[in-house]
């Protein structure tokens, strides 16, 4: 099943911690956003394999915007 990791807050993409094809754990930090001068890690709610990364560093994102797509690992 496909799943999405969305921005939890409006801000700038500070760091992308994963790449396409990488397997990640549930709760793993996948992106760090910067907002209100704070570093805000975004975690994946599920374990999965990264199928798409929709942002690059320094991009502006709105809350709820899709950052990463995953294929859920069963």
């Amino acid at each position: 099943m496909m799943a999405k990791v969305e921005a939890t807050i409006v801000g700038i993409v500070s760091k992308i911690l994963v790449s396409i094809g990488e397997e990640i754990q549930k709760g793993q930090e996948v992106i760090v956003l910067e907002s209100m001068k704070m570093l805000i890690p975004v975690e994946s709610a599920i374990a999965g394999k990264v199928t798409a990364v929709h942002v690059k560093e320094s991009d502006f994102v709105n809350e709820g915007e899709v950052l990463i797509e995953l294929e859920e690992l069963v």
């Binding site: 939890t8 907002s35 209100m36 704070m38 570093l39 805000i40």
Partner: peptide, 8 residues
Amino acid sequence: QSKTKGGV
């Protein structure tokens, strides 16, 4: 809680 949304 700075761990979530920076504690904003």
